[in-house]
Design a protein around this nucleic acid. Structure first.
Lengths: 237, 237
DNA sequence: GCAAAAGTGTTTGGGTTACACCCATGC
DNA sequence: GCATGGGTGTAACCCAAACACTTTTGC
């Protein structure tokens, strides 16, 4: 009997970080490979699936092991399993990767583990990564940008309370273009997922903006019939 | 070292079939289980992944082994791997299933294999299936309905040439509601994926409708950066 | 007062929905 | 002619983009 391909779980970890000018930009966490195929190159964090472990738990776990953080949002991206994922490797070393993508709060990301072998990279200026990981990141980016427009994903980057300007900044960073503040406000108010707290953010050098929070009774995104069954996306700490 | 969970590939195979009144309805192919867990119950066709086989090839293969047909459209749905997929089974028998969904032409489906152990079922009146397969089918249905609206998926059910009424019938069967013929025509013409052949379908007992075909230069659906890389969805026979 | 961002109002145009109506064919 | 679906026209409506304008704070 021929041996089955090995199974691994990897995670694309997104966050927002301020660049040198203080402007928020989309970043993702990568680890440097210390072993043979693609040694020394950067790759997505990942590893084997535990025998007693759900797929999403494995993704969560390797997110934690890499950054020391918990995901604010976690969703399965795709299973990659083509034969040429690791050119030059023996067919016996074939790996099928089930990839998740995750959002991490930009406040928390600032305190994340960083080292010689774990680092954040700007999403729009990646070099060549190990394996087919460039393709995977491209796909994750595409999904993130698509979903942002018809869901409440932006919450994954923000704290409990935020101003509409901060929320807009998230949208602008992810979509890569500027948005009209007035229309953005109406768009957000119309969808109803955000509610005013009545509080204001003081200390700016202009009119103090109102603080909002998300309506927690609404899911971050519509996963259809999948919600609480196979993937538990809301993990209580 | 603990043993890794096994990997399987399954496929949700959709087609359209006329019901007793001649009206097209959405159907899917199931197989009867002949082995121990859930023996005698209906389940999605599937099986282990070959060592030298791409994921989509495995899905294609088990579609062919089940029905004798080739898919008109094939897309990865989701990887299901939660621990409680097979209640009562030993943890050592744990299986992670990478599920694909496929469309099969309704003309071809009429000639598909049917037997004691392989049969078509109406998508909207399924009994309890084996494992978590009801959830999987629900999710596949949700994806199909969602994608139909912003892509050219309906082509997967039709032959090379078709009338707009036939195309509309596909939409109505999948979406489960009636559509205005006039607006449907404009919607289809506006998106530009369909072109008139100039031919007409004669023999109806009313004004002969024009035959259309799809513009083959446009993909059936937008898969983002994934198109021709990990999943080869267009298989040459 | 001035700068800067918060927040509101208004116009416009594109696209969808509903529905009326004419057209071409078989019987 | 008449029934039937093919195919066209059109008015109403909704929604999103563009942009002008008012408000409220710090300095």
């Amino acid at each position: 009997m021929s041996e089955a391909p090995a199974l691994a779980v990897s995670t694309v970890i997104f966050t927002l970080r301020p660049d040198s000018t203080g402007c928020m930009k989309l970043a993702l966490a990568l680890v440097k490979r210390i072993r043979k195929p693609f040694q020394g190159q950067w790759a997505l964090p990942g590893g084997p699936l535990g025998v007693n472990e759900d797929l999403s738990d494995a993704a969560s776990r390797n997110l934690f092991e890499t950054t020391g953080l918990q995901p604010r949002y976690l969703e399965q991206l795709y299973a990659f399993g083509s034969l040429d994922r690791s050119p030059g490797s023996n067919i016996k070393d074939r790996v099928v990767s089930i990839v998740y993508w995750a959002l991490v709060g930009s406040d928390e990301a600032a305190e994340a583990i960083e080292s010689e072998n774990v680092s954040w990279f700007w999403a729009d200026e990646l070099d060549k990564l190990a394996f087919d990981h460039n393709l995977i990141v491209d796909y994750a980016l595409w999904r993130l940008r698509n979903k942002l427009e018809y869901s409440r994903l932006a919450h994954g980057f923000l704290g409990e309370r935020f101003t509409l300007a901060q929320l807009r900044e998230v949208y602008e960073a992810v979509l890569g273009r500027e948005l009209d503040p007035g229309n953005f406000r109406r768009m957000v108010e119309a969808n109803g997922a955000v509610v005013a707290t009545g509080e204001r953010l003081e200390g700016t050098r202009h009119r103090p903006p109102q603080l909002y929070r998300y309506d927690s009774s609404i899911d971050l995104t519509d996963q259809g019939p999948l919600r609480n069954s196979t993937n538990k996306q809301e993990k209580k700490k």
